[in-house]
Nucleic acid binder design. Sequence first.
DNA 1: TCCAAACCATAGGATGTCCAAGTATATTGT
DNA 2: ACAATATACTTGGACATCCTATGGTTTGGA
Lengths: 139, 139
Amino acid sequence: MAAITAVMRTASIYLQRADAILKPHGLTFARFEVLALLGFSKRGSLPMSQASQLLQVHATSLTNSVDRLEATGLVRRIPHPTDGRTRLLELTAAGQQVLPAARGDLNEKLFAQSDLSGTDATEIFEILARFRKASGDFL
Amino acid sequence: MAAITAVMRTASIYLQRADAILKPHGLTFARFEVLALLGFSKRGSLPMSQASQLLQVHATSLTNSVDRLEATGLVRRIPHPTDGRTRLLELTAAGQQVLPAARGDLNEKLFAQSDLSGTDATEIFEILARFRKASGDFL
DNA sequence: TCCAAACCATAGGATGTCCAAGTATATTGT
DNA sequence: ACAATATACTTGGACATCCTATGGTTTGGA
């Protein structure tokens, strides 16, 4: 139980730090994750449904994030060529510019001040990866 | 970075499970934490400010939780005997009844299905405790 | 003494997350 | 081909969290 509480508090601390670091870039962590995901995808575009699965959030949460990203001009919704239900997400030029800057800042500041030794980070990751797998994360 | 993501996802999974378990009791995890804290305190009452520090949430978040707990009759706000600024939180009879049931259910179901071995849980707790201490958690 | 600074709690606004419903489009089975 | 089912996304509502600002209350220094 103490372990569970510790995980929750730690997540909350990291989220606050990440949001603070990303604020100057006009981003929150949730929105950064969307941008980063689009940056990874080779074709540069992803259906909403696929993005929400990869990010492990509900479609409604993604709709919310994308609304804001679209309002600030970092992402664009385009129709799917063959499936009328699906919208594809795509980085705009502005999005392609903001992403590397935000990512660099986050890597440098959050990772650097993470107060976790390399072995601790590895340990944490491995234990939690086992847990997440057992819980059906990663699909 | 992967470790940080893992912590966040894990926290999210646990939070969802906890909320689901507590829902039949008319509680969320945030509100349960308030109840549990009041249950721990020997005198049975705590100032809002102290409770928010112990729970590591902003005073405004606690105000929100307490509003809902008060609306459902589980907690009561009473004036501080000597300091006019302070409100004391106190469990109602209903609150004293709900708390052990909710706690038992949570311990049984969340802890049992935690998919974490005892040694893993200990490991996680220790590593994250170091991190939290370095980050100024625990005050 | 008395006013300024500190402190407590709350209100209002922004964000993110979930669930339940609703709308539109595809797919499937008869 | 058509109706039933499934899928994709959005909308509306409930919660939680943060930040900034505000109204009371206390305290401490001039």
